[in-house]
């Protein structure tokens, strides 16, 4: 068991005023037996009304709101303390949609060949380790080489990408090998920016793999949101009126208590 304190702040600056800004945040850590949220404080500004909290189809906590008046920046942040304990879990079946391709994880012929070259180990857990190794070996980490709309197939043939692309390729390959897999957005121990990794389902529970760093995602990883791919669980989605450039700055820090 590990007790972690976390802090995550994002600020978006607009070059011209925007209005009618609707947002949907998934920055509140998930509440799970393995991840008990002890306390948190969420802030967002500007705000005009309370906004609303909810849970989506993937089990993520969401916070949504709307800013009608003109504004030139939007920031949100969360701080808190939680307990991570991977030995706590309630065995259950994964949602069936984690077995099938999603919008960003449709396999290409290239990816199918790649998947077929992964050697099957005695358990899915070991096979997943082999997938993480292969994905790590295939990619060169190049910030800015892909966008949030890049599919697994596109990133794979580019051989370059960021954590999102590593995770998408990992998920695509795992599903091709009949291992249920999902995408995770979250905060790993340390500081910098938010991260993405993947989980596979094995023997009643989810196991985390971080193919970008070629390691498992252990109790030092805080899960903010999960989904079939990035589109299901991005930390922030927004829609507003106004023609402008956006500049985003983000900072996160996770420390062991």
């Amino acid at each position: 068991m590990r007790k972690l304190s976390f802090e995550f702040n994002t600020r978006i600056d607009f070059s011209n005023p925007v209005k009618e800004h609707s947002f949907l945040l998934r920055c509140i850590p998930m509440s799970l037996p393995q991840q008990r949220l002890l306390r948190f404080r969420l802030n967002a500004e500007p705000l005009e009304t309370m906004g609303s909290f909810s849970t989506d189809s993937f089990g993520n906590s969401t916070y949504s709101g709307r800013i009608g008046a003109e504004h030139t920046s939007f920031s949100y942040g969360i701080t808190g303390i939680l307990e991570r304990d991977d030995s706590c879990f309630i065995p259950k079946q994964p949602a069936p949609f984690y077995r099938y391709p999603s919008f960003l994880t449709h396999p290409s012929a290239e990816l199918i060949t790649f998947a077929n070259e992964i050697s099957h180990m005695s358990t899915d857990l070991e096979t997943a380790g082999a997938i993480a190794d292969a994905v790590f070996g295939h990619f060169e980490y190049v910030p800015g080489s892909t966008s949030t709309a890049t599919t697994a197939a596109q990133a794979f043939s580019l051989k370059k990408g960021v954590c999102q692309d590593y995770a998408h390729v990992f998920i695509t390959v795992a599903r091709l090998l009949n291992i249920p897999a999902r995408y995770v957005c979250g905060l790993p121990l340390g500081d910098g920016s938010s991260h993405a990794w993947a989980e596979i389902w094995h023997d009643g529970r989810w196991y985390g793999f971080d193919p970008t760093r070629d390691r498992t995602a252990d109790e030092g990883y805080i899960k903010l949101s999960v989904g079939r791919d990035f589109n299901d669980c991005s930390i922030e989605r927004g829609h507003f009126l106004g023609a402008c450039q956006q500049h985003q700055t983000s900072f996160m820090k996770v420390m062991e208590q």
Binding site: D56, S57, F58, A95, P96, F97, R99, Y100, P101, S102, G227, R228, D232
Partner: peptide
């Protein structure tokens, strides 16, 4: 509940690979 899939009347394949299936509508 997905009883019809569990009872093997409609194969899961035909549900989850259908472009009209939306995971965002699950659980409501």
């Amino acid at each position: 509940d997905k009883k019809i899939i569990k009872d093997n009347v409609v194969p899961a394949e035909f549900v989850y690979r259908s472009p009209g299936y939306l995971a965002q509508c699950e659980g409501f």
